[in-house]
Structures are given as C-alpha cells and as structure tokens.
Simulated assay, not measured.
Amino acid sequence: MMATPDYQLHDIVEMKKPHACGANSWEIMRVGADIKITCTACQRTIMMTRFNFNKRIKRILKAASEIK
C-alpha cells in the first residue's frame, strides 16, 4: 500500500489532470474526511473524498510553511 502524502491546509498542490481553465495548481482549503481545493487561477472550488484526492494528487508544489 502506498503512503499518503503529507499535505496540510493552504498547501499548493498539482493534480494529475489540469483544470478546465488550464491551470494545474490548487490550494487546499479544507482537510478532513473530504478535501476542499480551490483553483489558483480561476478560484473555482471543488470537494472530493480523501481517497479520490490521494489518487489524483501528483505532488506538492509549495508547502504552507514555505508560503508564510
């Protein structure tokens, strides 16, 4: 079984598929049983289960600790 990535609130992540607007970076807005992410380009927000998020995440672009 694959280890889950260590992501936190306000991390900027890259997903495997780009958003319809063309951007591929998302900010994590909520972490729990569901994950809420917001597109950094068009501000569209989506929610998905933690299981689906773990399948679709590619990598963490910027950790929240690096941003502040």
Rank of each mutant, 00 (worst) to 15 (best):
I46T: 12
K16D: 05
I28F: 02
R50K: 15
M48Q: 12
R44Q: 11
M48S: 04
K62P: 00
K58C: 02
G22H: 09
A23I: 01
I60C: 05
L61K: 15
I37S: 08
A63E: 15
I57P: 01
N52A: 07
M48H: 05
I60F: 02
K17H: 09
K17S: 10
R50V: 03
I60G: 06
T38S: 15
A20M: 11
Q43G: 02
R50A: 09
Q43R: 13
R56M: 12
T40Y: 00
K58Y: 05
N24T: 08
K36R: 11
V31K: 13
N52F: 07
R50T: 07
F51N: 04
C42P: 00
K36M: 09
R56Y: 04
N52V: 02
Q43L: 12
C21I: 06
T49G: 09
R44V: 03
W26H: 10
I57L: 13
K62T: 03
E27H: 08
I57M: 13
C21P: 08
A63S: 14
T49R: 07
G32E: 06
W26C: 00
K55F: 05
I37Q: 12
E27W: 03
M29A: 04
T38Y: 07
T38V: 07
S25A: 09
M47G: 07
I60S: 08
M47E: 14
L61V: 13
I60Y: 09
I35V: 15
W26E: 03
K16E: 12
R44S: 11
P18D: 06
E27P: 00
T49W: 00
H19E: 07
I35C: 01
K58W: 01
R59V: 00
C21D: 13
M29K: 15
I46Q: 06
T49V: 01
A33W: 07
A33C: 04
T40P: 01
T38N: 14
P18W: 08
K55T: 03
A23S: 15
P18N: 14
D34I: 04
K36N: 01
K17W: 04
R30H: 14
F53D: 02
N24M: 09
I35S: 02
A20G: 06
C42N: 11
Q43T: 11
A23P: 00
K16T: 07
C21F: 06
K17Q: 13
R56G: 06
I57E: 02
T45I: 14
V31R: 10
R30C: 07
T49Q: 03
K36Y: 01
S25W: 03
M29V: 03
R30S: 10
M47T: 08
A41P: 00
V31W: 07
I46H: 05
S25Q: 15
A41G: 01
T38K: 15
C21H: 11
M15Y: 02
L61N: 10
R50L: 09
C39P: 04
M15Q: 06
Q43P: 00
V31P: 02
F51A: 04
N54K: 11
K58T: 00
G22V: 10
H19W: 12
M15C: 07
A41Y: 09
A41T: 08
R56A: 10
